[in-house]
Amino acid sequence: MIDWSWFPTNAERLVPALGAHLLLALLPVVIGLIVAIPLGWVANRSRPARAVLVPVAGLLYTIPSLVLFILLPGILGTQILDPVNVVVALSVYTVALLVRSVADALAAVPGMVVAAATAMGYRPARRFAQVELPLSLPVLIAGLRVATVTNISLVSVGALIGIGGLGYFITDGFGRGNTTSIFAGVILIVVLALVFDALLVLIGRLVTPWVGVGRKAR
């Protein structure tokens, strides 16, 4: 079923595809996070903004990825094979997911803590950066994990319209009847997703050392 000798002989195709796959999946996570934090902040601060942002995010999230990959060139004026389409589409999904995460995470910061920070003389911007954002990290990282894992899985859909990454080994393997190639694509994608998920869990533990301390002490 799986021909293990296929891997070394195709290493020079696999490695660049792996790199391309990661770039296409992770660049949108970074872009999405940068855009979603201010939007989520606004959504948490103002009810009307939330009433617009959250449903719009939900609506964007319902559009199938293949559809977005195909429609974006018409909207952006790019070529259909341009990887920019994939990056933009996945960034849209990431923003749609994280706006809600950021808003919910900020809303979950105890009001007393924010009030105490204000009472000690924090100005809003500094309070956001030093109190509210750190305290919302656990929920934010949970959102980042979902975005990262789904993005890594979704890049493969791009292969259907000829955009690189590991998905190519699935479509190409299917076209040639090469099971090893299909499995190689699937397995590498799953491994990548699990590795980056674990990495985010680890980063989460490092940046929020206060989480779970109370439970351990008991």
Partner: peptide, 18 residues
């Protein structure tokens, strides 16, 4: 549920059809 999320749908479909 979390594990399933990392499975690429295209890959699952392709493998089953194969």
């Amino acid at each position: 549920a979390n594990g399933m999320r990392s499975l690429p749908e295209l890959g699952v479909l392709t493998i089953l059809v194969t």
